[in-house]
Design a protein around this nucleic acid. Structure first.
Lengths: 271, 271
DNA sequence: CCCGATTTTCCGGGATTTCGGAATTGCATC
DNA sequence: GATGCAATTCCGAAATCCCGGAAAATCGGG
């Protein structure tokens, strides 16, 4: 197989199973829009002919991937819950993480997220809403550039200068508020500093009047495998309370690291 | 295509999107077997030609439905976790239930399950393992006949005699231990009694040396919408402790019912 | 280094899905 | 009951995917 020199990566897009790809596109669309969608909306958004979309729709209903919501709209189906639970059961960090994320939320009352790297982006593995309603942009499953969050600083902090610079230059983007740091050199300084400090903090970079503190989850070799972050209203992060949050996050992250280490010494893990 | 006159209703099974159906079959297979599967295993188990299976496999890897596990085996992928979380966010009972299931597990130390009806079978919506290792057959997502578990007795207890008899005759089956009641008339008596008592109990019917107690989650009209069940070793269910478990389960179920009722009066719900 | 077993890729005909448009149904309004 | 609009079904032709088999790559030994 001859590779075009200017397109070194294969063009994976077009490989077979079109209906499969379109099906997950429909599911993802419903998920992203956050509410049930009618068939017409989906067909239009994804440029799928309506008659074809009906075939897919029926198949997905039949498989439990979709469920009729109201009259003419459809929502994600129970089979997805089932398979999602299966994924979670395979992965230690999600099993153990659920417990610790919730405990940290209960302890601090703030919104807690657990994140890890997925490719070049930060991936939000799970989220528990705090008692006060601090609206956070990222939901479970969303992927964002590392410069948008304090957790992102920590997640990439094991890379050497060269690899770090490559990831940053290719993924850094302005945040919704426009306040996130986008200068690669300054980011690298912040990342090194955060790693040395053992935590990271950010205020207002992605959400108005809110910010977060993050702590790294380390494996046996002190590599960062995930990050716990606490999202809180701006004033709490500027108050002396701040260090309470930092301490709570660091302790929870250390607990999670220890739990995972224990897992690994007795059980099967992935990756 | 010629329709057999004696099959007037369409046979919805075979409708289009073959690759989609096969894809979920592969995912379900991995989930059921509980560990990563090689392509050869899946192709063989599902009678899919190997060359076709490769196409599906690549598409699924590309979509994040599958993830390479070890060398030649594949596990469920992160996209499933993402979509599963999306499903959960839509459904009140899963959001609220997670909290209460975990609390009940922590309070009693036993394995807790939350179930609801899905068609004619009992569907295990979520499970938290107890501290002692009581092995339970059913995992999150599995569906079993209602006569296999105490929770099943409660879930169908709103049906009238006719509907109840129909479901029972069509789904009742011997349990793994062979000890579950399979006589429809006796089952109906047990179901009516359990509903009147406000809880149900079973020992050894599906798991050796273990049993469970279950309590109904009721909506505003006192209809059963789900059931919480506690699985415990046989001796604990025969001891005076038993009533502690029953009481804990009933209280937790009532809490969940109240939480859902509160949800409904302010938020959007499905169904 | 060669051999055998397994995994992965490749290929051309044939089966199925897909597509666009039109026909039909369903529903609410007039 | 008539009418307009959207949802759903139906259809044949065309495009695509799927299949079986066979070749190539990969991996472990001997």
């Amino acid at each position: 197989m001859i590779e075009r020199p200017d397109a070194p990566k294969a063009a994976p897009a077009g490989s077979g199973a079109r209906s499969l790809r379109r099906a997950v596109a429909m599911l993802t669309l419903i998920h992203r829009r956050g509410r049930p969608q009618s068939l017409a909306e989906m067909a239009q958004a994804l440029s799928i002919p309506k008659s074809t979309a009906y075939d897919l729709l029926n198949a997905m209903l039949h498989e439990g991937l979709l469920t009729p919501a109201d009259g003419t709209r459809f929502a994600l189906g129970h089979r997805l819950h089932e398979l999602g639970a299966g994924y979670r059961a395979q992965v230690d960090i999600l099993r153990e993480g659920a417990r610790i994320v919730r405990a940290l939320r209960d302890e601090t009352g703030e919104t807690v997220q657990l994140s890890a790297m997925e490719g070049p982006l930060m991936h939000v593995l799970m989220k528990e809403e705090g008692f006060r309603a601090v609206r956070i942009i990222s939901n479970t499953g969303s992927r964002v550039p590392v410069n948008w969050a304090a957790a992102g600083r920590l997640l990439v902090s094991d890379l050497d200068d060269e690899g770090l610079r490559r990831i940053l230059t290719s993924t850094v983007a302005p945040s919704p508020t426009g306040l996130a740091e986008t200068d690669v050199d300054r980011l690298m300084d912040q990342i090194r500093a955060a790693r040395a400090a053992g935590y990271a903090m950010e205020i207002g970079e992605t959400n108005q009047h809110a910010g977060c503190v993050a702590a790294p989850v380390l494996d046996d070799d002190n590599k960062v495998i995930a990050a716990l972050s606490l999202a809180a209203p701006e004033q709490r992060l500027n108050s002396p309370d701040r260090m309470i949050l930092v301490t709570a996050a660091r302790r929870a992250a250390a607990d999670l690291g220890a739990a995972l280490s224990a897992c690994r010494n007795g059980q099967v893990t992935r990756r």
